[in-house]
Simulated assay, not measured.
Amino acid sequence: MSRYLALFLIVLLTSCSNYGQLTFVTKLPSKISESSGVVQLNNSTFWSVEDHGNKDEIYQVDFEGNLVKELEVKNAKNEDWEDLTKDPQGNVYIADTGNNNRKRKDLTIYKIPNPDIEPGDKIDAEKIDFYFSDQQNFTPKEEELQYDCEAIFYHKSFIYLITKNRRKPFNGEARIYKVPAEKGNYKAEFVGSFETCEEPNTCIVTSADISPDGTKIVLLGYGKLWVFTNFTWDNFAQGTMETIALGATTQLEAVAFKPNSNTSLLLTDEERAGTGQNVYSFELKE
């Protein structure tokens, strides 16, 4: 296939998909069809992981969709990797926190040193093991499916976790917890809760991040963003929450602030039914 024909097909497929307010950036590499987390450490590449059933690897991608590097994460197992975040020192945290049926007793966040400067093809991980402080029952009753988690972010030596509500009937509640961002075994402290909205297909939280200046927190859903401002710590849900309907119809699973920007977002989605597996950008209001 010629380069021009390939470019034409990408443009054609892009024009036939509904990305709403999102700006299409590039296709993800073929190896990354289930991007569940994204983090950006420099202006030319980003890192992504895949969720349940995929390799114990983290992938570096450039903004033309090329796979730059892949690192095997040692001392780690991908039970259900669901999000990525970073700290000011460039350490990256992998949330092995997917818990669809709330049966898991091995919830973990893997902490790895800055992958941008790793010279080899493997990288060591430390384990931050935890359990939810208010979870007493590990049997999957539909009205209590509150302990799945696909969204984390780092702030001042803590990892904040936001749950993905799977209960039936759905009530829109998302819960906030925090654990220290250091190796150990912890009881995740309950911080607070809030309601996203009432539609279960779009009102579940799939990723999170905090702006470099710490004044904005964004949560991602399937076609929605929730932006928190004017908050105090730890319960940021008591601040101002703005809901942004993205108008996108794809399975959005990952969001991150771009380096040195408090308004520019990077997003990815999973491949589903011939759509998705893309990288997008979105600009928040100042």
Rank of each mutant, 00 (worst) to 15 (best):
A245D: 15
D234E: 15
C16F: 14
F24G: 05
F153D: 07
L9T: 07
E283F: 02
V73G: 05
Q21C: 12
A181D: 05
R175E: 09
I128M: 06
T229A: 11
S44E: 12
D234R: 06
A248E: 06
T108R: 07
L284W: 09
L265M: 01
I244M: 03
T250A: 06
K55T: 15
L67A: 13
R166L: 12
E283N: 02
S30K: 09
N18F: 07
Y59D: 08
E34I: 02
G239T: 00
G247S: 00
E118G: 01
S17W: 05
E126V: 08
Y222P: 08
P113Q: 04
V191S: 06
L84Q: 00
E173G: 00
S35W: 12
D124E: 15
Y222I: 07
T196Q: 10
R104I: 13
G221Q: 15
W233R: 08
A254H: 09
L220M: 04
Q135E: 03
T26A: 14
F170M: 04
P200V: 11
Y177R: 06
R167V: 05
F46R: 00
D129M: 12
Q146T: 14
C197D: 10
S157Q: 15
S157H: 11
G37Y: 08
A6E: 10
L22Q: 10
E286W: 03
E182F: 04
I123V: 09
C203A: 03
A248D: 13
Q89P: 01
T97L: 01
A208I: 08
K285H: 11
L5D: 07
K183Q: 14
E283T: 07
I204T: 12
D116E: 11
P259I: 04
I32H: 11
T139R: 08
P29F: 04
R3V: 14
E79Y: 13
